[in-house]
Design a binder for these strands. Structure first.
Lengths: 216, 216
DNA sequence: TCTAGTACGTTGTAATTACAACAAAACAGG
DNA sequence: CCTGTTTTGTTGTAATTACAACGTACTAGA
């Protein structure tokens, strides 16, 4: 197994390269490859292993009662997935599918909670990392929820931009989406968003070009 | 300190009553009382202690750039608060205030991550509990986000009711809110919600009386 | 340079929603 | 039983939004 590529991933931050092989062994880590369209985890299943995407692309899908699946999230290489279900000991409410040929590293959560004696050196760091990952996602979800709780699209945009201004520390911000992505993030129609943005610019509230916005 | 009342709280689930005093000592735990309106944590602050509300009521407030504060959440006795900021090592974006005279138990997060040797017995359980608390909140936030992502209020209601039907295991469900609470949860106007509900009933999609709903 | 494809803004229309004001029902306390 | 209070439903209006259709600008590749 190629452990060097795992070092940058958030779960292993602060872990020394030479510790990694022992850590993976301790957590019963094993890699498994999946072909495009293959299902990694089924909804309803109780999962007791973390997945870390080593390479490829993995999608989190949710299917409603009628059976039509919607994309909930895309997982990027290095990221953990389904961790909220594993740590919460809850059955999956989503399905995880490979969107491209992918390699996944699986780690045993029970081993994580009850590590062997030797593991204690890096286990502390691993725990801190996992808590930080969950906490960070929490903050992200809470932020988006605040934007979506606004009553009008204009207020949603303002709430979002104000957050970005604060995070980026300047009243001129670069957004990580194109217009469609921004509309998805704010749960609105793209053309409706375009219309609102253009109106806000006319009203002198913001200025924008592409995905660069200035709050006035 | 009265430790018996702490046992039912989620962070201490599975901890034996006789272990609790040693645990509190190990984590540098101390109780502090606050008067109504007193500020526990200020926005911008970097907090390195968990708060557990022992008694009273505590509010999480967010103030926008204009200075008007809005209520983000109410903390109930036994619950942890601000844990996402502590675990994420992020400065608070909210202010925490006592809404009534309150008692809070503070625990040192650094001690939690680097426990003394003797602590190892219960430390494992504590870690699992904390991870579960964060994961559970994650799932809650994700669920609400799914509802709020729907384009129309009718779809938001359906998304929410379908979740409740699945959780409660029956097509007849009892909701934990009154109408105003439901409107707040779905980020909509109360009277608009009433109108949509009444239309859905006329259309034969649902039946309801007060906060008891049936999905048809 | 040309072209196909994608991203973005605009427009018009129908539907939805917020908001305010009010009516009806449910509730609590005397 | 009465009364004041709270909760819920209804109505009307103005504003907002979704949705579809289309034109324009930008991009990548031949």
């Amino acid at each position: 197994m190629e452990t060097a590529s795992l070092l940058p991933c958030p779960l292993f931050r602060g872990i020394a390269a030479e510790e990694l092989p022992a850590l993976l062994k301790c957590l019963n880590g094993y890699e498994k490859s999946y072909q495009r369209q293959e299902i990694l985890l089924h909804a309803g299943e109780l999962c007791e292993r973390f997945g870390i995407l080593v390479s490829g692309t993995v999608q989190i899908l949710k299917e409603d009662h009628h059976g039509n699946a919607t994309l909930v999230a895309q997982v990027l290489p290095g990221e953990l997935f389904a961790e909220a279900f594993v740590c919460g000991a809850m059955p999956l409410s989503v399905t995880v599918m490979a969107a491209a040929d992918s390699m996944v590293l699986w780690l045993d959560y029970r081993r994580f909670l009850s590590p062997c004696q030797k593991a204690c050196v890096f286990h502390r760091q691993l725990t801190a990392n996992l808590l930080k990952i969950l906490a960070t996602r929490n903050r992200f979800l809470t932020g988006r929820l605040e934007h979506l709780s606004q009553r009008s699209l204009r207020e949603k945009v303002l709430s979002f931009l104000e957050e970005q201004v604060q995070v980026q520390g300047s009243s001129s911000v670069q957004l990580p989406f194109d217009r469609q992505g921004m509309a998805d993030y704010l749960a609105a129609d793209r053309s409706a968003l375009s219309a609102v943005l253009s109106r806000m610019q006319k009203d002198g509230v913001i200025q924008y070009h592409k995905n660069h916005f200035t709050l006035l």
